[in-house]
């Protein structure tokens, strides 16, 4: 990610403001996300991460500012954006009373994929996750870590240009979290851009670039190494603490 000038901008945000009544949840956000990178959005709870990700993914409209996702304007071409993104939230997004296979088929279906393609990708996905034997198990019956990995794989089933992950590893043990990030790297190799919010500082190290939000503003934005240098900190956690106390 060093030669950023060659990089193609896939998300462009300029002076984004989101107000709920008098409360300003997002204050004048400006940033670009480049194609193929893992862009981390860090911040404490209530810092405005989820508000921002909801705007980018079309769940919520901005109060003002320019927002372009995958080359489309959020005000005018929300439908085009929807077709080109995937989404997974901290609230678990698979249906507990459907089987693994049925969930995959459902998501493929609502993204307009053909039955044959869904079948191929289902097979591929299950063997990659080593879950082929569990294809006909109900989601309610499989462990949380597996559900999380499955939810991510389903979110990129239709090969979106960008996938938005809203605190995807909440409540998961460190080993599963590591495996989860392996999946993210695989997706990036497939050319998918990853936009992820988290409050785990160790996860910030996995990102190519990180922006840290404090009270609705972007307080810092750089590579993890760049941030550590800039703030003279040994870890992302120290960087975050310094910023939050400032």
């Amino acid at each position: 990610m060093k030669e950023q000038d060659d990089k193609q901008i896939i998300i462009h945000v300029d002076n984004l403001v989101k107000k709920f009544g008098d409360f300003e949840a997002n204050k004048d956000l400006c940033f670009d996300v480049y194609k193929g990178e893992i862009f981390g959005f860090l911040g404490a709870n209530g810092a405005g991460k989820t508000t921002a990700i909801k705007i980018l993914s079309g769940l919520s409209s901005p109060t003002s500012g320019i927002v372009e996702v995958a080359g489309f304007d959020v005000y005018k071409n929300a439908d085009d954006i929807k077709r080109n993104i995937g989404y997974m939230s901290q609230k678990f997004s698979l249906y507990e009373d459907l089987t693994v296979k049925e969930n995959i088929r459902f998501y493929g279906g609502i993204y307009g994929m053909r039955a044959k393609l869904i079948k191929e990708r289902t097979h591929e996905l299950l063997s990659r996750l080593e879950m082929t034997d569990y294809a006909d198990k109900l989601i309610a019956e499989i462990p949380l870590g597996w559900k999380q990995k499955l939810a991510f794989s389903v979110a990129v089933l239709h090969r979106p240009k960008i996938v938005f992950l809203d605190e995807p590893t909440g409540g998961v043990d460190p080993i599963t979290r590591r495996q989860f990030w392996d999946l993210i790297y695989e997706a990036v190799e497939d050319g998918i851009t990853v936009f992820v919010t988290t409050h785990y500082m160790d996860e910030a190290e996995y990102c190519h670039r990180v922006s840290i939000m404090v009270d609705g503003r972007i307080a810092a934005l750089d590579t993890p190494d760049g941030l550590k240098q800039q703030y003279g900190a040994g870890s992302m956690n120290d960087v975050f603490l310094k910023l939050a106390r400032a």
Partner: peptide, 13 residues
Amino acid sequence: ETGTMEVLLISPL
């Protein structure tokens, strides 16, 4: 309640 509504709203549906 389960959060799947968000996923549906984000989807092209």
